[in-house]
Design a binder for these strands. Structure first.
Length: 1039
RNA sequence: GGGUUCGUAGCUCAGUUGGUUAGAGCGCUUCGUUUACACCGAAGAGGUCAGAGGUUCGAAUCCUCUCGAACCCACCA
């Protein structure tokens, strides 16, 4: 046996060991022995390429590596797939920050040069991170490494985008979005954070009311007062219009009653700013109000702000207030108003709600071929247990979030990332479309819905059509496109007798299925049919929208610059409102002119002059320009579990076994993976979700980059204490979903443990003849009590650790290995092995070492692999088989008890010596009342440092434990009073416990209700106490 | 405003469906170099399990309330 260093030096072995693993190829499941059949897979949550890993990453890596190594040793075909995330905004910000140091902005460089800079930065980050991942010991399959901007990932992203667009799950819409003026980009709802801030709150006189605001600068164009319908203070003004003196002179204001106004809040009256508030936007939409942009994307005033145009909005507040004061419009100012400021989670800049045209993912819509919407599906797979979230409590959080999820804004106005796979082409000229409704039919007059049943015009309908003809007599249309249903065709004949006519089926009324031609009262609420199809083989309104969308695309191509008249039905016209005017179905239905009978001859639309193409690759032909925006980074991350895998791998490894990540990205990432994957793959992305907590400082602060003194750099502490120690410190004593406090003393403690294992191995390997032992046959019958005891404990450990790991009790399992190794194997068995070895002892030692290394390996891979190698194993520890209990009988409680008595008597002897101040080296004479075996004698003498003698003195102290009854025969030492006091104290304690037990055993309710096993146990205990009490009483008398 | 978690030894934390005298590491006290280890060994002190009720034969564990801390979501004219 080679000489082993006294202390384990991680620096000397870690790199070499990692290389050995990597070279072995076992990180790659394809190279594992054939017996590894059942797949087990984890996809690494891809770290952002924003520099380097932090200690939180190290925790995540430790947990995942433990799971992977455990499963690999259990014979699974394990895949741990590495990758990194381009992290769009975050990465761009890093590079912009660096540029700023040189006094430059990204605009100085231009897009191409800037992206080159980003690329340089990313390559550096990737290198750093790869090295960090390796140095943490992560057994990742590098042959499958992935990046979110890789070609195949990009392809998947685009395919998914296209499919979602075709399915109507991705749309472009004009909405109020969260805009970060610094990032110059939109943010998703959950990318906005809130910060409490004190700011003046202004009360302004606004005509008949007083309104409050913290943001006067947005209120230039407020023209509507909202009050609560039940608010008596304002009853008299509801519905009226006023001329109001305001920031830039007089404006017209009207008063609307809506329950959105909170009577308790402020004055109970508010004005609304539709373009700069989510709530106001909804109100404006509801009441069809004008939506005027006051502040532009640079945070400057638009023309709507009158004389303020072009000024920076946020800086103009005081000036505006001054003007208002001068005008006498300031009622009062509350200086101590505390409100929540919305800020950008990436850069902390105040977020500006802004009206903007963006791409959205519809989370509440049911796509063709799907039974449920994205959010319903995502909710159900968790509810029905297809996905299991650990710890449990996050289910609640998850459901709550899903229930309140709004459509997801996915376009970002930054340069770095997946450019949106949509191309636009300017058509030469716009198409002018005029829509005409067909004349009335008998059905219409009876209040029946015609749908796709095909009645002719009624007499009235014919008259209407002739009237229409007179009105449009002098108009010219290049073509009249009609629905192919009779009522439309007939209207066209009568109204436009001499013009070119084309029929198009796509212009038909909505197919009401079995309700076609039936009375209108049989229909449900109109909004119901937006998502739901009409009964029978009917359509819903989105189906109509799809038909009209296709038709418009053709019209755009076929009639550029022409004037087109359309003669059709109600729902095709509402679809035009949606497609051309950017309304929602709800809006279109509420605003429809028909119920209000405000019909006018001809509704004009200007068909956008661009053609749109959505695809994986750019369309052919000239003049196409790709949408300049990029996708939210979470869009590509949401596909990560499968976009990183080949089709072949997906068949084997998808769904993945577990997603292990921090609870802080449950919404950002986990929820979105579930939504997208269940939709695209028709299966869940993973079966279990294990959420770990955050790493905090010793005092519970968040570690933050901005305060370097609070952070712990994983590499630095790995250098100092060894990677194994760092891994243990992150895992032991932590539980899923709870935060972990980390500090150097803790890591040092685990470093000591690593060293302990090292020295245990050193002792065993230098004491036993490894070659001989590995050839010897083990014989349980020849084992001593101590041998049997440690084997019993070891096997129990194997059983418990396996069970714990199967149930994600990672910390607990680690702690058990730790405790067994130190307090049982090292402190007791090793000492006994020195004092009184049996001829089986070397074999037992060897077995203990092998098993301990295996059990500890997932946690502390480096030192265990190194020791395994030193044991002379040819096979690597990473794929050696996980220990199992070969014979249940080895776990033996009787042996455990007997050994405990032996431990107990030794502790009592040591205790006695300590109490009497006997130096540990000095042996005291002890007389044993009962006959002891040579082994027992030798163990007790060595471990307790005493000496057995043949006779006892008159004056002696008596110590007992189980079968052992000893007299300390050193009369100079014995203090009778002290001994007596001690014994009496012990007696009192035992009696108290005994009494408690007896009263429990006398309790009939206890006997009736408690399980038998418990009762038996208590009885047994009572018996033991009784014996102990007897002995103590005797002892006291003898003294 | 809605929700979640936490409060266990001086510190950091475990404690699986309720069932031994509530545990670990660090720190503390005393003693100790016995050829695996001072990154060690031996012995010890230290807790009304935040508080108050309740359920139960039995509560750190389940329920209600109170106090304290952290976090999440929503809203904030």
């Amino acid at each position: 046996m080679k000489e082993l260093a006294k202390a384990y030096d991680p620096k000397q072995v870690e790199a070499d060991i990692y290389k050995t693993w990597d070279d072995s190829g076992y990180f790659n499941p394809d190279n594992l022995p054939k017996s590894h059949k059942k797949p087990y897979s984890i996809v690494l949550p891809p770290p952002n390429v924003t520099g380097k890993l932090h200690i939180g990453h190290a925790a995540m890596l430790a947990i995942q590596d433990i799971l992977i190594r455990y499963k690999r040793k259990q014979g699974f075909k394990t895949l741990w797939l590495p990758g990194m995330d381009h992290a769009a905004i975050a990465t761009q910000n890093m590079v912009e920050k660096n540029l700023k140091k040189e006094g430059k902005t990204r605009h100085d460089l231009g897009k191409v040069k800037f992206l080159a800079e980003v690329e340089k930065f990313v390559i550096e980050s990737k290198n750093t991170i790869t090295n960090q991942l390796k140095s943490m010991g992560s057994s990742l399959d590098w042959s499958r490494e992935s990046f979110t901007l890789d070609e195949n990932v990009t392809k998947t992203v685009r395919e998914v985008f296209k499919k979602m667009y075709d399915d109507g799950l991705i749309y472009r819409g004009n909405r109020v979005v969260n805009w970060c003026p610094r990032c110059q980009s939109t943010l998703a709802d959950d990318e906005v954070e809130y910060k409490e801030a004190k700011a003046p709150f202004y009360y302004f006189k606004y005509g008949p009311v007083v309104i409050g605001t913290a943001r006067p600068e947005t209120k230039f164009a407020d023209k509507v007062i909202i009050v609560h319908p039940k608010d008596k203070r304002y009853n008299n003004i509801v519905g009226k219009e006023f001329e109001v003196e305001w920031m830039e002179g007089k404006i017209k204001a009207k008063v609307i009653a809506d329950r959105a106004a909170d009577m308790e809040m402020g004055t109970g009256a508010m004005t609304i700013t539709p373009a700069h508030s989510h709530l106001d936007f909804e109100l404006a939409t509801k009441y069809n109000l004008e939506i005027e942009q006051i502040i532009d994307k640079d945070g400057k005033f638009t023309a709507a702000a009158g004389s303020f145009e072009g000024m920076v909005a946020s800086a103009s507040r005081e000036k505006i207030v001054a003007i208002m004061k001068k005008k006498g419009l300031v009622d009062r100012i509350d200086e101590d108003y505390v409100h929540n400021l919305s800020i950008c989670y990436r850069c902390g800049t105040s977020v500006e709600p802004l009206l903007s045209k963006q791409w959205f993912v519809s989370v509440g819509k049911v796509a063709p071929g799907m039974k449920k919407s994205l959010k319903d599906e995502a909710r159900d797979v968790v509810r029905n247990g297809e996905i299991n979230i650990i710890p449990d409590r996050f289910n609640k959080t998850y459901f709550h979030w899903m229930d309140h999820l709004r459509d997801w804004c996915i376009s970002r106005q930054i340069w770095y990332g997946h450019q949106i796979p949509v191309w636009y082409k300017k058509l030469d000229q716009p198409v002018e479309i005029t829509f005409f409704a067909h004349g009335t039919t008998p059905d219409n007059e009876k209040g029946n819905a015609s749908g796709q049943s095909d009645p002719s015009l009624s007499e009235l309908g014919k008259k209407q059509s002739v009237e229409l003809g007179k009105i449009v007599k002098n108009k010219h249309y290049d073509v009249i496109i009609t629905s192919d249903l009779s009522r439309a065709v007939e209207t066209a004949e009568l109204a436009f007798p001499n013009m070119k006519k084309v029929q198009d089926k796509r212009l038909r009324e909505c197919d009401y299925g079995s309700l076609n031609g039936k009375p209108g009262k049989l229909f449900k609420d109109m909004n119901y049919y937006i998502e739901h199809k009409h009964p029978g083989k009917g359509e819903n309104y989105k189906d109509v929208e799809q038909r009209i969308k296709n038709l418009l695309a053709d019209i755009g191509k076929d009639y550029p610059g022409k004037k087109v008249a359309i003669i059709s039905h109600k729902f095709p016209q509402l679809a035009l409102e949606i497609l051309i005017n950017g309304k929602t179905w709800e809006q279109a239905i509420t605003e429809d002119w028909r119920p209000k009978k405000t019909w006018k001859p001809g509704w004009n639309y200007l068909l956008e002059t661009t053609d749109t193409y959505i695809g994986v690759t750019a369309p052919s032909g000239k003049g196409w320009q790709q949408d300049p925006d990029t996708l939210d980074t979470w869009f590509s991350s949401a596909l990560w579990t499968f976009s990183t895998m080949s089709t072949k791998d997906q068949k084997i490894f998808h769904p993945t076994s577990v997603m292990e990540t921090g609870y802080d990205i449950l919404f950002f990432w986990v929820a979105r993976m579930i939504m997208m994957t269940t939709y695209i793959k028709k299966e869940v992305p993973f079966k279990d979700v294990y959420l770990h907590g955050l790493i905090r400082t010793k005092t519970g602060e968040k570690m933050s980059k901005s305060k370097p003194e609070t952070t712990i750099d994983p590499l630095e502490v790995s250098q100092k204490f060894g990677t194994d120690a760092v891994r243990l410190s992150l895992v032991i004593g932590s539980t899923p979903g709870n935060d972990v406090r980390l500090y150097e003393e803790k890591i040092a403690g685990y470093r000591n443990f690593i060293n302990k294992i090292w020295n245990i191995s050193r002792y065993i390997l230098t004491t036993i003849d490894v070659e001989k032992v590995s050839k010897q046959k083990f014989d349980y019958k020849k084992c001593s009590l101590s041998d049997q005891w440690i084997l019993s404990r070891l096997n129990r450990l194997i059983r418990e650790v396996t069970e714990d790991l199967d149930n994600y009790r990672i910390g607990q399992a680690g702690e058990k290995v730790f405790a067994f190794t130190w307090s049982e194997l090292a402190d007791w068995y090793l000492e006994i092995a020195k004092a009184a070895p049996s001829d089986q002892t070397p074999l037992v030692l060897y077995a203990c070492l092998e098993n301990i290394l295996s059990l500890a390996h997932p946690y502390i891979p480096f030192v265990t692999e190194q020791l395994w190698r030193m044991m002379g194993h040819q096979e690597l520890l990473i794929i050696s088989k996980w220990p199992w209990v070969s014979d249940k009988k080895i776990i033996n409680e009787k042996i455990d008890r007997e050994f405990r008595d032996l431990q107990d008597i030794i502790v009592k002897l040591r205790n006695f010596k300590a109490e009497y101040g006997v130096p540990p080296v000095k042996k005291i004479p002890v007389f044993a009342k009962n006959v002891l075996s040579d082994a027992e004698k030798s163990i007790i003498e060595k471990l307790a440092r005493i000496e057995f003698v043949d006779s006892k003195n008159e004056k002696s102290a008596n110590l007992t434990s189980g079968k052992y009854s000893f007299h300390i025969s050193n009369e100079d030492l014995i203090d009778v009073e002290k001994e007596k006091a001690k014994a009496e104290k012990e007696l009192a304690e035992k009696k108290k416990l005994y009494q408690a037990l007896i009263s429990r055993l006398d309790n009939k309710a206890f006997l009736a209700n408690a399980p038998e096993a418990i009762v038996a146990k208590e009885k047994e205990k009572a018996k033991q106490y009784q014996e102990a009490i007897n002995k103590l009483e005797k002892k006291i008398i003898n003294l």
